[in-house]
Simulated assay, not measured.
Amino acid sequence: MSNTPSRKVLNRLMVIDWADDTAAFQHVPSRALLMREYLRRAALWAQAYRAERSWPFFDIAAHIDATITTPLDVTEDLEPLLKDLAPASLRTTCSGAVRWAALRDAHPDLLEKLPDPYEPLLRMYERGGGFYLQEYLDLNGVMIPLRNVESNASTTSFVTLSPATLDALDGEGESTYFAKISNGHPRHSPRGIVRRRVDDDQTHDEAFTRNLRWEPTEYLKLYDLWHNDIDHVQITEIEAATFIETLTEKLAGTS
């Protein structure tokens, strides 16, 4: 059995529980962000190689170097996995990710200009399985619009793909994020972040602390009562993810 990059990707696919609805619901926010990032990256590759008509779920390697093949044992082991997957676009991306790994192995400089297209999608699959493609993309817990190549290519990038950061973005209900700002601590480098999470009509205010987890906070309630001098501004999930990852790296001494 080969131990090639394509085999490593296949091994990741083979251990995924494609019917794990519980995981899909537990990771709704992070899975949605990962899918949007795949759509953005795939759009960039489609534009670069004139493959807009094949976007969004396509074999990108085939448009770059059609001669690329995977080892025979990988191809043979991939076939039974694909047979049980639906829809067809899910099968296409799984085989495309395996072939992409072989392409990268043959062309090490491939990612100098554009990011790896399939990594966000692989991470999404690992956090609750696949998707259903209808008028909207159904991720089994959230539905997102496809839109078109141009609009996806121009969206904000989501580059924080570490499991710890993705886990921190998940939580039951709908979350709104805020950055605590002051002199010397602008929006892109806040004093801290908090979120208001609403689940089953219950409101939970939480701050991401130096313990690297969300903990209850009275900050937003005190602010509404004029008992807090620290200001805040609403931010996106992607901005919250950047703060979480930066703090994690700082406390780990890797930044």
Rank of each mutant, 00 (worst) to 15 (best):
M124L: 08
P117G: 10
G171F: 10
S162L: 06
D170P: 03
G171T: 06
A179G: 15
T160N: 14
G129M: 05
L166R: 05
D201S: 13
V149W: 02
R147G: 00
A168L: 05
N152P: 00
G184P: 14
D199Q: 10
R187I: 00
V198R: 03
K180R: 15
L121K: 12
S157M: 04
V194W: 01
P120I: 00
L114D: 06
G130L: 02
N140P: 04
P186R: 09
G128D: 11
S154G: 05
N140Y: 11
G184Q: 15
D199C: 11
R187F: 04
Y136T: 05
V142F: 04
R195F: 05
E172Y: 10
D167V: 08
I193P: 12
P145E: 00
M124S: 12
T165A: 11
F158T: 01
F178T: 07
Y118N: 02
V142A: 15
L114A: 10
V198T: 06
L133M: 12
Y136A: 05
D170R: 07
D199T: 06
N152Y: 01
G141I: 02
N183M: 10
P120L: 04
R127P: 06
P190V: 10
I144V: 12
E135T: 04
A179C: 08
E126T: 12
P163S: 14
L114P: 05
Y177L: 03
P115A: 10
V198E: 02
S182Y: 14
T176Y: 15
Q134E: 08
A164I: 08
E172K: 11
S157P: 09
R187V: 01
N140F: 14
